[in-house]
Structures are given as structure tokens and as C-alpha cells.
Amino acid sequence: MEAVYSIIPAGVLSQVFVGLSRTTILFIVASGLTLILGVLRIPNVAHGSLYMIGAFTAFTVTKLSGGGSAGFWIALVIAPLIVALISLIAERGMFQFLYEREHLMLLLLTFAFSLVFGDLVKLVWGGEYKSVPVPHIFQGFVPLFGGLPFPLYNLFLLLAGPVVAILLYLLTNKTKMGKIARAAAVDREMVGAVGINVSRVFATVFVIGCYLAGLGGVLVAPTVSVTLGMDHNLIIEAFLIVIMGGLGNIWGALLGALIFGLTQSLGILIWPKFGIIFPYLAVVVVLLFRPTGLLKSTW
């Protein structure tokens, strides 16, 4: 460890870990986006709004349960489910009638939903900053590599990322549902022809994807101030990640999130004011060499 520490300055190392914790959130949200993209072929612009709703719901749930440590864990269970429920209503109420229509219309519909959700959040929660307390057992710091303090909660995030990745892998590759969904991504007509209710498969995938957006929102809530506008930043980042990784590829989302999180956190060290440019540069470079993303996309 001493050797590592002597080669890499402490600031860089701590930024790497900050970037990795950010990667977790980005991956969880982007994997939901890419899942929907892969199977339903909708770039769900409202995904960011669902993430925001997840974060705001987490705030309310934590507050209602007394603001104690248990609140966060209850929110972690309930808030993504509420988001999933909202998405289910949207899907059954509107999206399902448009699957036969042009692609552009579906996309514009998600735009419309992002506008509506954004204003509904403003209506329900108001424009002020909200904060969600870090759960009790994850308060404080752990020393990392020669006494570098690292928030315990971020360590929890670092563990949560791989867990979600593995669960998603199992869901899409090992269950019948996942196999049907992947088949529907390739040829939805054929899947329908062998007697499977494609519409229901689509609804399930859509809801799972949106659940992940909500989950990301809850997990991020203790680390940032929950505010209007967090949807916009995130959807742009998630888009870039999915583009880099390859549309519809979950491992691509992981890879893209890693590149994005690290270029972002290290970019700030290089050029504090405009560090935001570096992830974009990474995307441009990736696309120059691989116009369809790093990993194979489903379509």
C-alpha cells in the first residue's frame, strides 16, 4: 500500500474513490435506461424525472418515519416501488397504445412525461433544497490508504453497485422472463407469434427499468441535496453512458458509467472550473473509434 501511496498523490486517489461511488449511482440509473432501450427501444427521457421522484420520495418517507436511521431503509424499499407504480400507470395508461406508432412519437411522449413529472414534483415538494440524512450505521469515515478519510456511506454505494449488476445479470440471463425479454428485443413479432404476450413483457421491462431509476434516486439522496433540476443533469449523463456502452447492453452501461464517473471526478482535478468537459471528450473519442458504442448493442 505504501508503494501505491507514494506513486499516486492522495488527492487523486480520493477523487478516484469519489468517482467510483458516483459510478455506482450512474450505473444503476443507466442500466434501467439501457434495459428499456434494449427491449422497448424507447430512449426514456422521463427516466431522470423518475430518479428525481425517487429521491424526493425518499425524503418524504424518511421524514414520515421520524427522521431516524430506520427511515432510510424503509425508503430504500418503498420509494423505488412507488416509482415503479407510477411508471406502471404511465405505461398501461399511455405508452402501450403507441408501440405500433412511429418511434419519434414514443420519444416525444417520454419528453412530455419529463415535463409533467418535473412540474408535479415542484407542485408536491416545492422548490427548496431537501436533504436526506445518512443512515446511522454509515455515518462517519473510514481511513483508506494511509489515513485518507473516505465516507462510510460511499463504501456502501461501492458495494451496492456490483450487487445490482449481478442481480440484473441473473434476471436477464437466467430467468425465463429475462430470456423472453431479450428475445423480444431482437424480434418482437416472432415472440408474439409463439404465443407470448409481448405487451405484458414490455410493461414488465419498463417497470423494472423505472424501478432502477427510483433506486438510484434513493441511493443518491443522502449524498447530495435533493432538488429540482437533478433530473436534467442525470438524464444527460445517463444518455452519454448508454451511448458509450452500446444501446441496450447492461455491461456497456457499467463500462460507460465507469468511464464517465472517473473522467468526471479526475477532470475536476485537472481543470476545476470546466471539469465537466472531460466526460464529454471521452464520449466523443469513444464514438470516433466505435460509432455504435464500446460493447455490442442489441440493435
Binding site: F97, L98, L109, F111, A112, L115, V116
Partner: peptide, 13 residues
């Protein structure tokens, strides 16, 4: 934005 979103949905549908 809410009004705009609703108009948009109605037009699309």
C-alpha cells in the same frame, strides 16, 4: 411546463 406536457400528450395521442 405541466401545461406544455399535457398539450404534448394530447397532440401525440
Amino acid at each position: 411546463a405541466l401545461v406544455l406536457g399535457i398539450i404534448m400528450m394530447l397532440v401525440i395521442l
